[in-house]
């Protein structure tokens, strides 16, 4: 799987073009970041892409937690849950794996 060349990335490792995204690309990016994608990961990645379609913005930390709360419930809409899935920084990592730009104002 690693033999598939990755599409163009920016300096922070985010896809330059959302159109280049595919589940395979997400899996490779995840592996490079020592993350093995499970259904729990995909559920959040899908949701973040939905966020982007709805608002044309990549969610920063607080917006991500709130959106997950609204759509996947309180148990999953917590920083600690998202941190376990997407360390070390959930908002940055999940946007990266979802092929979205780096969220603004996110540290």
């Amino acid at each position: 799987m690693n033999e598939i060349p990755l599409p163009e990335l920016d300096n922070d490792g985010y896809l330059c073009n959302l159109q280049d995204w595919s589940p395979t690309v997400a899996t490779i990016l995840a592996e490079q970041n020592q993350i093995e994608l499970s259904d729990a990961h995909w559920e959040v990645i899908d949701l973040v892409q939905q966020f982007y379609r709805e608002f044309e913005l990549a969610p920063a930390s607080r917006a991500l937690v709130r959106y997950v709360q609204q759509h996947l419930g309180k148990e999953k809409g917590r920083s600690i849950y998202l941190l376990q899935l997407f360390p070390p920084h959930p908002a940055l990592m999940v946007n990266k794996l979802a092929g979205l730009p780096r969220p603004a104002n996110c540290f």
Partner: peptide, 15 residues
């Protein structure tokens, strides 16, 4: 140009 309306609708979720 990008649609500012979609961004504006994100205000509540951004707090």
């Amino acid at each position: 140009q990008k649609d500012i309306t979609k961004n504006l609708s994100a205000l509540p979720i951004f707090g």
